[in-house]
Every structure is written in structure tokens, then in C-alpha cells.
């Protein structure tokens, strides 16, 4: 085990998979000579050459379309959206074309689109979004949102080896801030299996990505303040999502908070809340609560952005109300 940043873990996973499998190549804007906007692919072109680390024109439709075509032919492209926000330019190719290809034709499309997502540093409305919920509504795609360095690498390798289009949302606020142990062996993290980030008995928080750490701080705060025991479930993947783990945790705690950085209405938290209402009704001792961003674009100004992104205090408040219900 070595201690790595979240960003190093992503980079390592990608590099090792490229070393293992000649079919894997990288395509994106400024991924080659520049080394990627966030330097995930720094040094890749020197190691693998310009034809495995392709500097694409500013053309997300062409990038994702080319991934579709190349993966149809048996290659395993990994595209980088410079920012997750830019993925809307490739919406048609992901949702209409790639997501439906296997269903309508039986030809697999093994490609990954890496999406640096999330806010927290004044990126403004076009460089801070968390669009995972939009894609979660599209059958045929798989949606991955790692929170830890170990998962960042394990889920990326799993995504590359998966024979379907996988959207891999890597949270920018975790890149260099979060460090953790990463196995140096060849391992994968399976899709559809949540991780208990912190065990607890009073309240369950279901979350993913950067919000795992917000939940953790809130859990520590309430534990120290009044002994409330919070269980944190890190979903790891949104599609598929681990319904069983959520219901099992709610069976233990009888209280559920769903926390996400994406906006509230139509966010994936609504899906989780609805499922627990359907299938865990008898387990609940309190209403399910969603803590999510308000239904606005991501504002630029720091105090506004702070009001937008769910903060530790917001989660603490939700835990307190729920525990008192």
C-alpha cells in the first residue's frame, strides 16, 4: 500500500491499464502535450506516444462519437471531458447513440468518459456542475462517482474493462486534497456495491463523491457534541446503485438523509428517497430528508457558492432535526 492523492490514483489506474492493454487509449482536449487540464495524463504522451494520447480538437461530439466508433471496432478508449460541464455538447452521442447501441444492435461499446466535476473553488456556472443525475436517467449508461483514492483507481480500472459506456465523475475538489492508501496490486472495485464509510446506529446518510467528506465532518461534529451515531454509506456508483445496502442501513438506523452536491429537484437523491419510501416504509421512524444544492446554476461569488454547495452545518442541522423527530 502506498499513500496517494485521489488524482494520482486516477492517473495510476489509467496508466497501468494502458500498459496492460494496447487497446486502451486516451482522447480529449489538451490531454497530450499539455498533460490534461488537471494533469491527470501528465507524462502519458512521453510514455505512450501521440497516437495513444490523442489531443483532440475542441469538439466533444466528435470525441465521444469517435469513442463510440472506435469501441465498436474493439478498442477501449478513455475520453476526458476537460470539465464535466462540457459533456452537454456530447449529450446526443452519449444518451441517444452510445446508451442505446447495445440494446438495438448487440454491439458492445467499451469506453469511458472521465468527467472532472463539482465545485468549491469559484468555477462559476459552467465549470462546477455535477451532472450525474441527468445521465442516471438513461438506461444503457453506467455512472461512477468515486470518493476515495482506492476507489478512484479500482473503479476506473473496472470502468475501462466494462463492455459498456461508463461515465466516470471525478470530483475536482478531491484531486489533491484527499490522500489515502491505494493497493499497488492489479485490483478492481466492483460496480453496484456501496461502501460503509462510517458505521453508526442513529441516522444513515447516503451520499457519494466529495459529499462523503462533508458527511464525515458532520458525523464527527454530532458524535462529539451529543453522541449521535451516524452511518455513512458511500454509494460509489449511481448506476447501478446499491439499494440493498441502503435498505440494510435504514433497517439499522430507521432514519435516512440523502446528501448530494447536485441540485435538489430531480436529483438522484429523489430516486433513493422514493425507493426507500416504497420498500422501507415500515423501517422509517422519520421522514426521509434530502440535503442538496438549491435549484439554481452554480454561482461564482464565494459566499453565494458556499450557500449553494451543501455545507457541514447544513448536514449537522439535518441530523439534529432528524434525531429529535
Amino acid at each position: 500500500m502506498a499513500i496517494k492523492t485521489y488524482l494520482q490514483a486516477i492517473s495510476d489506474g489509467l496508466r497501468e491499464e494502458m500498459r496492460r492493454d494496447d487497446r486502451v487509449f486516451v482522447i480529449g482536449e489538451d490531454v497530450g502535450v499539455y498533460g490534461g487540464a488537471f494533469k491527470v495524463t501528465q507524462g502519458f504522451q512521453a510514455e505512450f506516444g501521440p497516437w495513444r494520447v490523442l489531443d483532440a480538437p475542441l469538439a466533444e461530439t466528435a470525441i465521444v462519437g469517435a469513442c463510440t466508433g472506435a469501441s465498436m471496432m474493439g478498442l477501449r478508449p478513455v475520453a476526458e471531458m476537460q470539465f464535466a460541464d462540457f459533456i452537454s455538447c456530447a449529450w446526443d452521442h452519449l444518451t441517444t447513440v452510445a446508451a442505446k447501441q447495445h440494446y438495438r444492435t448487440g454491439t458492445a461499446l467499451p469506453f469511458v468518459v472521465r468527467c472532472p466535476s463539482g465545485g468549491g473553488f469559484s468555477g462559476g456556472p459552467f465549470h462546477s456542475q455535477n451532472p450525474e443525475s441527468s445521465f442516471a436517467h438513461i438506461p444503457g449508461l453506467k455512472i461512477v462517482c468515486p470518493a476515495t483514492p482506492e476507489d478512484a483507481k479500482g473503479l476506473l480500472v473496472e470502468a475501462i474493462r466494462d463492455p459498456n459506456p461508463v461515465l466516470y465523475f471525478e470530483h475536482k475538489h478531491l484531486y489533491r486534497r484527499i490522500k489515502g492508501e491505494v493497493p499497488e496490486t492489479d485490483y478492481t472495485t466492483p460496480f453496484g456495491q456501496a461502501r460503509v464509510h462510517r458505521a453508526g446506529s442513529d441516522v444513515t446518510i447516503v451520499t457519494w463523491g466529495a459529499m462523503v467528506y462533508t458527511a464525515e465532518e458532520a458525523a464527527t461534529t454530532v458524535a462529539e457534541r451529543d453522541g449521535t451515531s451516524v452511518e455513512i454509506i458511500d454509494l460509489r456508483t449511481i448506476i447501478p446503485w446499491d439499494r440493498e445496502a441502503v435498505l440494510a442501513s435504514v433497517a439499522r438506523t430507521s432514519r435516512l438523509i440523502v446528501l448530494h452536491e447536485d441540485t435538489r429537484t430531480g436529483g438522484f437523491g429523489a430516486e433513493i428517497a422514493a425507493t426507500v419510501a416504497e420498500e422501507g416504509f415500515g423501517l422509517l421512524d422519520a421522514p426521509v430528508v434530502r440535503v442538496a444544492a438549491p435549484d439554481t446554476p452554480v454561482p461564482f461569488s464565494p459566499p453565494l457558492e458556499k450557500a449553494f454547495i451543501p455545507q457541514v452545518a447544513d448536514v449537522v442541522r439535518a441530523i439534529e432535526r432528524m434525531a429529535a423527530y
Binding site: 487509449f25 497516437w51 465521444v64 462519437g65 463510440t68 446526443d92 441517444t96
Partner: peptide, 15 residues
């Protein structure tokens, strides 16, 4: 829709 995909297939032939 098929144009970028066809370009990707041509890229794969090159690759």
C-alpha cells in the same frame, strides 16, 4: 449522428 462514429471507426482502423 453516424459521422463522428464513422470517424472513430476509421481511427480504429488506423490504430
Amino acid at each position: 449522428g453516424q459521422l463522428p462514429i464513422a470517424a472513430g471507426a476509421a481511427l480504429a482502423l488506423d490504430y
